[in-house]
Design a protein around this nucleic acid. Structure first.
Lengths: 223, 223
DNA sequence: CGGTTATTTGAGAGTCTTCAAGCTGAGTGG
DNA sequence: CCACTCAGCTTGAAGACTCTCAAATAACCG
């Protein structure tokens, strides 16, 4: 069981740089949780229960704007962590978290994690660079939203998410759309437009094949 | 001199939570630099010279999009730090940094800082929560760009930047506009619209008086 | 198969940007 | 002391992109 948790942690950027020794100690406090689809893990304003690592399934972390519109900050898939900033910074959750499908997570409970950080000087040091990477990713996201148009953002996402030139859309398209700061309508239209230009091919089951990665790269750079 | 550097560090979120002891050791490696207006501190892709803390003046950290458009990620004013993520994460600078006016900064050079982090277990631990706060701020910024309109973003900025219901615009309006993801034209128009509604008063010298903070808060919440 | 939910498509409206022109204000030299 | 100049700011009109609303289609689940 503990070996299992270790493996989950190993897959994620935040913990990958930990030494085997530290990793074991962190894994020891981990608890595996299972969730049904659409189950709420925590809500905006809650005290963070702990640091989550997705093992299987997917969690969307989102804000709800006054007016009911929601924006997906983070689509956490296997190997991703979330709520790390709230736990480590000691402030309440800045967003809601809900699963999209059947999901298994490892939870590192806040009290135990904080104790560990105080007890073991090696761990904070190694987490620091992990946090820096997370900042870097946020800056990328910000850049994305700010200086790319719909086609550019979608192209970049496709390029990043592709494996063997195939992208499997996680969960509902409208959540992915929200993550890219698009309505589902615009998302759909942009997808067909990319297909018309021969850059991608829409296959059944939410699968997308990249026909012309170089062309997509061009679009994502803003042309 | 060292006392001076200590004071500068003390003012910023990243270091405020450090114990007096650690603070001294960090301050010891700090170097004060002076810059002319529009002087370039580093460029995108450079190895980060170190962690900067603004003592006096202002630095804008910005990206240039293909096509020449620039976006201001961060307007660093006294007490703000920048390049922290690149130094701590060990990757190249993701953006350019340039002063807007005569500026004094404290630089904590990368090699010394890294050495300090390795040598002293206490410092990374205390920096971790500072990084978490920076993540939190980035998420706010992202939220800002994504779910507020021009008037909402400007209102929020004014409320945050105000002291005694007066905001002094740092540097050029067009840089502030870019930070809020607006063109300078839209910025100007939005300002006059807020003035017409009696929420603010535009005074000479780039000074803005908040006449109705409650009303601004209403606008910033998206109405 | 029927009901429900998600996605696609169409038409119209709104916001922000772009392009172009006029304005303002500080610094300069006559 | 004043006109000149240049950069930044403001204002106007036109256009682009995305959103909203509405309806049709497709996918899913019991």
């Amino acid at each position: 069981m503990a070996a299992k948790i270790r493996d989950v942690l190993m897959r994620c950027r935040l913990f990958r740089r930990l030494t085997a020794d530290c990793l074991d100690r962190v894994a020891a406090i981990g608890i595996t949780h299972r969730y049904d689809p659409k189950e709420r893990l925590f809500s905006q304003g809650d005290e963070p229960p702990g640091l989550y690592v997705v093992d299987e399934g997917a969690v969307r972390v989102f804000k709800i704007a006054p007016g009911g519109k929601e924006h997906v900050l983070h689509l956490a898939e296997p190997g991703d962590t979330f709520a790390e900033a709230a736990v480590l910074g000691g402030f309440p959750c800045p967003a809601h978290a809900e699963t999209t499908v059947h999901t298994r997570c490892v939870l590192l409970p806040s009290p135990e994690l904080r104790y560990l950080l105080d007890a073991d000087p090696e761990i904070p040091r190694q987490l620091l660079s992990g946090m820096a990477a997370w900042v870097h990713q946020l800056v990328d996201l910000l850049e994305d939203v700010v200086l790319r148009d719909a086609a550019g953002r979608l192209s970049r996402y496709l390029l990043e998410a592709a494996e063997d030139d195939v992208v499997l859309i996680p969960g509902m398209k409208r959540h992915l759309a929200s993550h890219l700061n698009l309505t589902s309508e615009t998302f759909s239209r942009t997808l067909t437009r990319l297909a018309e230009r021969g850059l991608i091919d829409r296959e059944p089951g939410g699968r997308i094949r990249l026909l012309d990665p170089a062309g997509l790269r061009w679009v994502s750079k803003g042309a």
